[in-house]
Structures are given as structure tokens and as C-alpha cells.
Amino acid sequence: MKQLARRRSLAALALCSPLILLIVCLKIYPTFYAVFLSMLDRKMNNFVGFDNFAFMISRPSFQLVIFQSVLFAVTAVILKAFLGFVLAHLMHNIRGRNERVWRGLLLVPWVIPLSLSTLTWWWLFDPSYSAFNWTLNMLGFEDIAFLGTVWNARLSVIAVNVWFGAPFFMIMYLAALKSVPEQLYEAASIDGATAVQRLFFITIPMMRNIILITVLYSLIVTFADFDIVRILTNGGPQDGTHLFATYAFVVGIQSGNIPRGATVSLFMFPILATLAFFVLRDVMKRNKEMA
């Protein structure tokens, strides 16, 4: 019997071995290798300890990257969460009535591969052919240099990310809304609760966990975003829109300074690890509640 159990767990381990192999070789090992790489000099011959980190953090251009990444991720996630929340409520209001069609239309931004839709945004923002500027001119406004000045470019990058990511928040929040028992609202209505009270005392507390998980998860993904900035501005104007990922790409791949590139990427690690810790904690708590 004991032997059977051992054989069973051996078989179980064998079934997991491709997964373990994949994670160890292509996720865990590269993480440690990145740390090793970041401690080498330019020619990758000598060990320099944390010199690369000290160098990067003292550089104004890199401090700007940190600022921009935080600005981008925090602003975009707040806007996505808010817009997703509004959209989920609107969808919930019309439940049953062609819901699938409306949902399908709202999900289009999220379905198109991001690099391709960003390319379309770039074309919409094009300095001399912008269809937005044509419309603005028709309405009697001046041209806007969407990608021409630092702050315009930052806002444009955030706008594209919100456009892409809001539908994801909508479906998560809509699913959460649907799981709130209708009786709670009925009881509140009988007690004379206003719409605002119902929102703050029923909807938001009931959705709390899913709101948290979605926001934390999105913060991770948005922090690590690459496609939008790479295509829309390539970090410009005057390095005003670089994020960790795009800056690491320019330093590590394009300029060929592998150790410095690895250093730039690794600066994301403490932020992402903290966020991941909270996601994991909430997911675990949730699983326990469900069980």
C-alpha cells in the first residue's frame, strides 16, 4: 500500500516535471542570472558589485525613468479602475438586453494585439496627418502636438493604456457585480437607502476583494509595460516617456550594455515583488473563503 502511494506521488511528480523544468530553467534561473549580470562591468569580465545600481540611481535620466514609470502606472491604473467600474455598472443596468453585443463591442480594444492598436494610435497622433487634429480644426480649435511635448506625450501614452486596459477591469467588475445578491439591494431599498449609500455600503464592500486583486495585478502589468511607449514615442521627446522596460531595451539590447540593461530591469523587482506579495495574499484569502 505504502509502495503504491509512493508510486502514485512519483507519477504525479513526473506529470509536473515539464512545468517544473520550464519554470526553473526559463523563469527562476534567468532571475538569478540577471542579478549576476547586473554586477559585471561593461565588458562583462570583472565583478563590480553594486556599482551599476549606484551609477544608475545617480543619473538624472534614470531618476526620470523611475518617476515616469510610477506616474504612468499609478495614473493609468486609477483611470482604468474608475472607467471599468463605471462601465461595469452601465452594463449591469442593461442586463439581459443585448448584453453580449455591447460587451463584445467594449472588449474590442482588449482583443486587438496591443502593438498593432498602438500603431494605429500613432497614426491618429501623426503630427502632419492627425485625424484628431483635423477634427479639432473643424471645431475651431488649434492643433495639438500629441507626441511633440513631454507632458502631451506622457498623457497620450497613459490614454492609450487606459483605452487598452479598461475593458479588462470592466469584465472583472461586472462579474463581481453579478455575484452580489440582489436581496441586499432590495433590503436596503426598503430601509430607504439612497443610491450613493447602496454603492458605498453594499457594492464596494462586496466587491472589495476583486477590486484589490484586479488593481494590484494591473499595477504589475502596467509597470512592466513595453509595447505602448516603444511604438508610440520610443521614450521621447527628450527621454520624457521612458519606462523601465523601454529604457532597459535601449540600454541593454540596442546599445549592447547587457549589465546596465539588466540593472535597469532589476530596479522593477522590489516594486513588483511587493505587489505580487499582496496579490498572492488576497488570492489565498479568497481561496480559503471559497473552500
Binding site: 511528480l13 512545468l19 526559463l26 549580470l37 540593461g261 530591469s265 522593477m268 496579490v279
Partner: peptide
């Protein structure tokens, strides 16, 4: 089926999902 450490592995799988490609593309290069 389960085996010793399968719980840890499930958690680990979820964690690796949170590791974005932009963190590892340079060592992978």
C-alpha cells in the same frame, strides 16, 4: 494526485505568472 510540495508548486506557478517578460528579457538574451 498530489505529492510532497505540490501546494508550494501551485503557489509558485501563480507567482511566476506575475513575472513580466520585461524583467527577464536581458538575461534571456
Amino acid at each position: 494526485m498530489g505529492f510532497k510540495g505540490s501546494q508550494v508548486l501551485s503557489t509558485g506557478v501563480f507567482l511566476t505568472y506575475l513575472v513580466p517578460p520585461s524583467l527577464l528579457f536581458i538575461p534571456l538574451f
